[in-house]
């Protein structure tokens, strides 16, 4: 009962109360959505703590057992503890412990700017190269579907840069007016693709997602979907 029935009841009560609260905009129901979201955020912070604890456990174990690449686990642990200490104790914060944790000049802000931002930015920037190699394979116009995808992507890429007007100027200078007109039309075509076909496709996807989320939410609230509870073997 405690392992399966209680969690199912919690999900049912919380989910039902939040749905019902939408139809009763008075106390105590009026603010329930906000309050429960706040509770959710607080529990999420405990989940971060759980994640941090787990990270330490895994990497300490790797160092202790001298597993493959254990030296890099020391780097992870060092980065973790230095950043954590800088943030929790607000080391070097110009406004002291009462100041904003991200205040300029604090060790936390400096570590954020010199480690977190470049590492994250470059990781995502690296994807540009992989996307380029993937697009080489995907963009070979093998059929009409791939050709439409290729043309749309090409027009968007071209239309959101100053390139069309520069190319149009070049053709105008060379006296090839129809090409200049065609390239001047690219930004308009880009806007149309974004505002019309892209909107239609996005809308169909959004409506599909909404129907999926609604049906899944109902399954969870009514206890039909129970996979999040895991198995009882552990």
């Amino acid at each position: 009962m405690w392992r399966r029935t209680v969690p199912i009841m919690i999900t049912f009560i919380v989910g039902t109360v939040l749905v019902v609260a939408e139809f009763i905009p008075h106390k105590p129901f009026g603010n329930l959505g906000e309050d429960f979201s706040l509770y959710f955020d607080i529990i999420a912070v405990f989940a971060f703590i759980l994640g941090g604890g787990n990270l330490c456990r895994v990497h300490f174990s790797k160092v202790y057992r001298k597993k493959t690449d254990w030296q890099f686990s020391i780097v992870t642990l060092l980065g973790f503890f230095v950043m954590l200490a800088a943030g929790l104790f607000k080391i070097g914060n110009p406004e002291g412990i009462q100041g904003d944790v991200t205040a300029a000049g604090s060790l936390f802000a400096d570590l954020y700017d010199s480690m977190f931002t470049p590492l994250q930015g470059t990781m995502y920037a690296l994807l540009a190269f992989f996307v380029a190699s993937a697009s080489y394979r995907a963009f070979r116009a093998k059929n009409i579907d791939a050709s439409i995808l290729l043309i749309a992507a090409f027009v968007i890429l071209l239309g959101r840069t100053p390139a069309p007007s520069l190319i149009a100027d070049f053709f105008a200078g060379a006296g090839i007016t129809f090409m200049a007109t065609a390239f001047n039309f690219v930004p308009t075509l880009t806007d149309w693709i974004m505002d019309v076909p892209n909107l239609a496709g996005q809308r169909a996807i959004l409506i599909g997602i909404a129907l999926g989320v609604i049906s899944m939410a109902l399954r969870l609230i009514l206890g039909v979907e129970r996979t999040y509870l895991g198995s009882d073997s552990k």
């Binding site: 971060f48 941090g52 780097v75 992870t76 503890f81």
Partner: peptide, 10 residues
């Protein structure tokens, strides 16, 4: 590895 540690702490 540094990114993993720093982002978790952040």
């Amino acid at each position: 590895h540094l990114f993993v540690g720093v982002s978790a702490a952040y």
